[in-house]
Design a protein around this nucleic acid. Structure first.
Length: 180
DNA sequence: TCAACCTGGTAGG
DNA sequence: CCTACCAGGTTGA
């Protein structure tokens, strides 16, 4: 269906139905599945959707499934991140350089941007990321190696990281071992 | 100008 | 290890 000048299409995965939004320039938004059963979204007649958008959705679906499996996303559709500010886009660009299984921290991103004190602003930029999962904001942890926050829900962040083999310090397992 | 953030570092228990 | 508290950059109202 089309809304607000953008195409809104659902993408079914083993983890639920994501919702992708496309502008004339590419993928401009991706939402996590809301209600597990509330996917009563009727598929739009294929011919009403531009071939270009259908192709983008195909790429999005493939990439999304791979990341959900802890793999590299592979080919991505063009991303329309024009909704963000310069600062935010710089942050998102750096996020894309973090591969599966790798993690960074808000402070490190800030430092790499030449704004050592902007770690909190980086957190804000991550939260404003319109295309989670594909723009891996979930791979950014707090300095103390803790999970940190996540707009889409901490559970998703943990799940995505777990799929990539990133194990965070168990919240209950503190100091049971001397090393780490 | 002000308050809200997916922070970080310090201080104290 | 855990809570409390404050400084800090950027954004949107």
């Amino acid at each position: 269906m089309k809304a607000n000048g953008k195409w809104v299409l659902s993408i079914r995965t083993n983890d639920g139905e994501f919702v992708a939004r496309y502008s004339e320039q590419g993928l401009c938004g991706l939402d996590f599945p809301t209600a597990p059963g509330a996917e009563a979204r009727s598929p739009e007649p294929p011919r009403e959707i531009p071939a270009q958008v259908r192709e983008w959705r195909k790429l999005t679906a493939a990439a999304l499934k791979r990341v959900l499996n802890g793999e590299m996303p592979g080919a991505l559709p063009p991303l329309d991140l024009t909704s963000g500010t310069e600062f935010q886009r710089r942050v998102w660009e750096l996020l894309c350089a973090i591969g599966p299984g790798q993690t960074s921290t808000y402070g490190e991103i800030a430092h790499r941007l030449g704004r050592p004190g902007a770690m909190r602003a980086v957190g804000g930029a991550c939260g404003a990321n319109p295309v989670p999962v594909l723009v891996p904001c979930h791979r950014v942890l707090a300095a103390n190696r803790k999970i940190g926050g996540f707009s889409g829900g901490a559970a998703w962040k943990e799940k995505l990281l777990a799929r990539e083999g990133v194990l965070l310090p168990t919240l209950s397992a503190r100091g049971t071992k001397s090393g780490d």
